[in-house]
Design a protein around this nucleic acid. Structure first.
Length: 699
DNA sequence: TAAAATGCATGT
DNA sequence: CATGCATTTTAC
């Protein structure tokens, strides 16, 4: 009704007439004000709107939560052809020129006031496809974030040159071949067949130890192509991507896929991204940000090693590549494959809800593929050999390494990275100490000998008693990994030592005797597999004050152990952890699926994610309190904390609250937090609050 | 960085 | 208490 004044077709000729006589500042709608109509106003009014669909609904690229909605603009007739749905535009917003995306073009606006004209069409390239727009909106809603924030992750910066370059014509037919690798999984061939037939099977894949996972993923992507559809695969890091790229080239030939990673320059990155958007290539493999790759006619999404924290986006709204891919699969009706040597609780939940089916091998096949795993508690017998004893190596570990080296194979030594927060465990039985009130992890509040408290709810644990053994003493976990690695050389004097870690990551090592010391995630591959692997200083992993400590330990161990030869070929893994721990048992039996099942059940019982939905609210004490007071939280929301957050190098006090709701209320929780953030941003509240839904770190 | 809304001093 | 000008707020 009142919107009509802006776009009333009857008005168009009048406006058109004005255009011809710029000097004539005639009455235009409400502009019938005072005597001197300004020149600027005349210039504005002198435009006329496009004849068809004159209103553009625009997502303005601003990070303010209270502006997270479309704004309507008139499309000037001159820009009609360039203002396409999904295109980039520039608009005047509160006086400033800002970037935006055209979400839609419509006949009229619901907006009460007058509409401004679009300032400029940046390009006619529809970079925001409807599929990505819908997925991005969904992700924003789940994460209590804004659409603009998500689009900043989803759409790379424009590079005009790249837009002009045509993509070379692709090769001929998709090479079709047998995919025997999947025969080892009873439902593997059926999964591929379904995909090739244009159906959309969803599976959680437990990769066999030693599996050539890049080749298996290439099989899946090829099957999507067979079915005439595109697909996206996401891996944790550049090294994994290199391997997947090679596997895809081997299976599909050149030019049928692209890789996307942060390592590419802006131009090349945008060029490849556009190739996908335009349908010039249908298969995209990449790291985290590629989860948003605008593959046309999406047939399948794949994520490898979804527990890797590299899949978590560190920028607002802190979404995870797995979530992004699964949302896309859901909305686009595409197939999904969540794979890894280990299994996350989130993947287990997909199975529990029947959203996905397990893709696993028989026990016998698993046994044949797995190395022999030997557990060793801390009190394992130290080697008698003086050199080995210096390195604090137990006999079994030392012997396993020796025999592998003697057989001409390299030995993998996994040592955790420095810097895990030491936490508290029972002094007698070493079980992680948990809060009696909320079951959060206990820790010492920095430095002194103060009383232990809960990192989640802040309850003090002065009279703590271990629920499993009745012990009353607490001990801090000892972290000292590097040193062991350095001392290894002394235990094996004539063996070359290679290291692969944060700074210098090796992709592969030659199949010859060597000690390969690597941090988790940086283990080089070796043709034929390692002869042995030693998993050292496991306490540093297991006693981390993190809900996921055990799950993460198993994931890292499995990723290392998967690189070792099968037991039948002499492969041995020695894990320096107590065989009584369920997580060690899971490695011993190579049963990450069983472990995930058990872990998820436990979390359901304790009320932890992913069995429930949690959100963290972090900021200055006042800001956190303000946000929580403003938020209309769903009934039954449990608030834990706030507790102080220790941040190195920062003097100001920062607090964090955790909110817990049943999964069914997850949406409402996110919506409430988003709305509260909006109120604060509209008010220009000075202290920022960070809201994270399902934060990775829960202490 | 443009208009609209609000604040404020000034003169009646 | 209307007026004009400066400042703040809104956001199409």
């Amino acid at each position: 009704m009142n919107s009509a004044d802006a776009v009333e077709p009857a008005e168009l000729p009048t406006l058109g007439g004005l255009d011809a006589v710029p000097g004539a500042a005639a009455p235009v709608g409400k502009a019938v004000k005072k005597a001197p109509a300004k020149k600027a106003a005349a210039r504005k009014a002198a435009q006329d709107p496009a004849a068809e669909l004159p209103v553009a609904r625009v997502c303005v690229d601003l990070p303010l939560p209270h502006l997270d909605r479309p704004f309507d603009y008139l499309v000037p007739a001159k820009l009609d052809a360039d203002v396409v749905v999904g295109g980039r535009v520039r608009v005047r917003f509160a006086g400033q020129l800002v970037d935006g995306y055209v979400l839609d073009r419509v006949e009229s606006s619901e907006h009460g006031g007058r509409l401004a004209y679009l300032e400029r069409a940046v390009s006619a390239e529809p970079v925001l496809s409807p599929e990505i727009a819908a997925a991005a909106r969904e992700i924003a809603d789940r994460c209590a974030g804004t659409l603009a924030d998500v689009l900043r992750l989803a759409i790379p910066p424009r590079h005009a040159r790249a837009e002009e370059q045509p993509w070379p014509a692709s090769a001929g037919a998709v090479p079709d071949g047998p995919r025997p690798g999947w025969d080892r999984y009873p439902h593997g061939p059926a999964y591929l067949r379904a995909l090739a037939d244009g159906r959309s099977p969803r599976a959680v894949w437990s990769a066999l130890p030693g599996e050539d996972w890049p080749a298996r993923i290439a099989d899946v992507l090829a099957a999507a192509l067979d079915g005439g559809r595109g697909a996206v695969a996401v891996v944790p890091d550049a090294r994994d991507l290199e391997r997947l790229d090679a596997a895809l080239t081997a299976r599909l030939g050149d030019g049928r896929h692209v890789t996307l990673s942060a390592a590419l320059g802006p131009q090349e990155r945008y060029r490849r991204w556009l190739a996908a958007r335009r349908g010039d290539v249908r298969i995209v493999a990449g790291t985290r940000a590629a989860a948003f790759a605008p593959v046309a006619d999406l047939g399948a999404v794949v994520i490898w090693d979804d527990g890797d924290d590299l899949h978590a986006e560190p920028r607002a709204p802190y979404c995870n590549a797995r979530e992004v891919l699964l949302v896309r699969a859901q909305l686009a009706g595409a197939a999904a494959l969540v794979g890894g040597y280990a299994r996350t609780c989130e993947a287990q939940l997909l199975l529990a809800t029947r959203w996905a089916q397990p893709l696993v091998a028989d026990r016998a096949t698993v046994r044949d593929a797995a190395p022999r795993v030997t557990p060793l508690g801390e009190d394992g017998q130290l080697a008698r050999d003086a050199a080995a004893a210096t390195a604090r190596l137990p006999t079994v570990a030392w012997q396993a390494a020796r025999s592998a080296l003697a057989a001409g194979a390299p030995v993998l030594v996994q040592v955790p990275r420095r810097g895990y927060a030491p936490s508290l465990s029972c002094g007698r039985c070493r079980a992680p100490a948990r809060c009696a009130t909320c079951a959060g992890p206990l820790a010492l509040p920095g430095g002194g000998h103060a009383i232990a408290g809960c990192r989640w709810c802040g309850h003090l644990a002065g009279d703590w008693t271990c629920p499993s053994c009745g012990g009353r003493g607490l001990r801090a976990a000892v972290v000292g990994a590097r040193r062991t690695a350095e001392e290894l050389g002394k235990a094996f004097p004539h063996t070359p030592i290679r290291t692969s870690g944060r700074d210098a990551v090796l992709t592969s090592v030659p199949a010859e005797p060597a000690l390969v010391v690597a941090t988790p995630g940086a283990e080089p591959v070796v043709a034929g597999g390692y002869g042995a692997a030693l998993l050292l200083d496991t306490w540093a992993l297991l006693t981390r004050a993190d809900l996921r400590a055990s799950e993460e330990a198993l994931r890292r161990w499995a990723n290392a152990a998967a690189l070792v030869r099968p037991a039948g070929a002499g492969g041995q893994v020695v894990v320096m952890a107590d065989s009584g721990l369920p997580v060690v048992q899971a490695l011993l039996r190579w049963d990450p699926a069983g472990y995930a099942e058990r872990e998820l059940a436990e979390r359901a019982e304790l009320g932890f994610p992913p069995a429930v939905r949690m959100a963290s609210v972090t900021g200055t004490p006042d800001a956190v309190a303000d946000l929580l007071a403003l938020a209309d939280l769903p009934s039954g929301t449990e608030t834990l904390g706030p507790v102080p957050v220790e941040r190195a190098g920062s003097e100001e006090t920062v607090e964090r609250s955790l909110l817990r709701v049943p999964r069914s209320a997850g949406r409402a929780l996110a919506a409430a937090l988003h709305a509260a953030l909006g109120v604060r941003s509209a008010r220009k509240a000075p202290d920022p609050v960070r809201v994270e839904v399902d934060p990775l770190e829960l202490f």
